[in-house]
Simulated scan of single mutants.
Amino acid sequence: MTRSYLPGVFAMAAVVVASNILVQFLFGQWLTWGAFTYPIAFLVTDITNRVYGTGPARKVVFAGFIVGVICSLIGTQIMGEFGPLVTLRIAIGSGLAFLTAQLLDVSIFAALRNGAWWRAPLASTLIGASVDTALFFSIAFSATLTWIEPGNDVSWAGEMLPILGSGPVAPLWVSLAVADWGVKIGLALLALVPFRLIVGRLLRKEATAG
């Protein structure tokens, strides 16, 4: 059984590594390319949960968390134009958001497992993604949490601007969070298609092997 869900571990590791690299590259005004790869982590978790159960799904999550910590440690040693690519606040926010959101995803999926096939992956991803976004952006950029890393100047993220250029006025990081959340929600809906196809294939393979 362990060998069966190892591809999930490798897939999660690949998503985390790719997202940590792509987050350095902007996509438009509010996003980075990492915003489009990171939500795949929820798909990997949900597929593992459906096919192999909550235990293996949690192991896949913890594997992704460990890879994320390693990526953060490497990022702290790489200097960019304005300092280390990964600051303490970003590292804490990223790790805490990932672990909390993914484990929440696993629990919600398990609770809804016996419902319609789409309900568990959709609800768990929507809730998990929302928690992930809220935790990461508030920890990494909110002015109220500057005590976490006083030496890290994130005043740029507190610039008051209309949300996404046209909404109510709020700190810049709120616009970044809203844009990121929107991508996660959109991809959660699209991910139902590969979820259905991949789960069906894996379950048939498990039944044949059994």
Rank of each mutant, 00 (worst) to 15 (best):
T76I: 14
M12Q: 02
I21R: 00
L202N: 09
I70K: 06
Q77L: 15
W147V: 10
R196S: 13
F36D: 06
A191R: 06
L96W: 04
A41C: 12
I185T: 00
V17T: 10
S175K: 11
R119T: 01
I148M: 14
D180S: 06
L187I: 02
I163K: 07
N20W: 09
V199Y: 00
I90E: 08
S72W: 10
K184R: 02
L85S: 06
L135I: 12
A63I: 08
I127H: 04
D132M: 00
Q29K: 12
R3K: 15
A209R: 15
D180V: 05
L187M: 00
R3V: 10
A116H: 08
W118Y: 08
Y38G: 07
G93W: 13
I70N: 11
L161E: 14
P162E: 03
A140H: 00
S94P: 14
L122A: 03
D153K: 14
A11D: 01
L43E: 06
S19E: 09
F109H: 02
V69D: 10
I163V: 10
V60F: 06
V44M: 02
L176F: 01
L85C: 08
V23E: 07
I66S: 13
W117G: 02
G167P: 01
P150K: 10
G158C: 11
I163T: 11
A13D: 12
P7H: 09
L189W: 04
M12W: 04
I108Q: 09
I47K: 01
A18N: 04
S124C: 04
M79W: 15
V51I: 06
S166D: 11
G158Y: 13
A134P: 05
T32C: 07
V193R: 05
F82A: 15
T2L: 14
G95Y: 15
L190K: 02
L85T: 12
T76L: 14
A191K: 04
T76E: 14
T208D: 15
I70Q: 08
L197Q: 11
K205W: 10
T45V: 09
I21L: 11
L190R: 05
W118Q: 01
A179I: 00
I40N: 05
L202T: 02
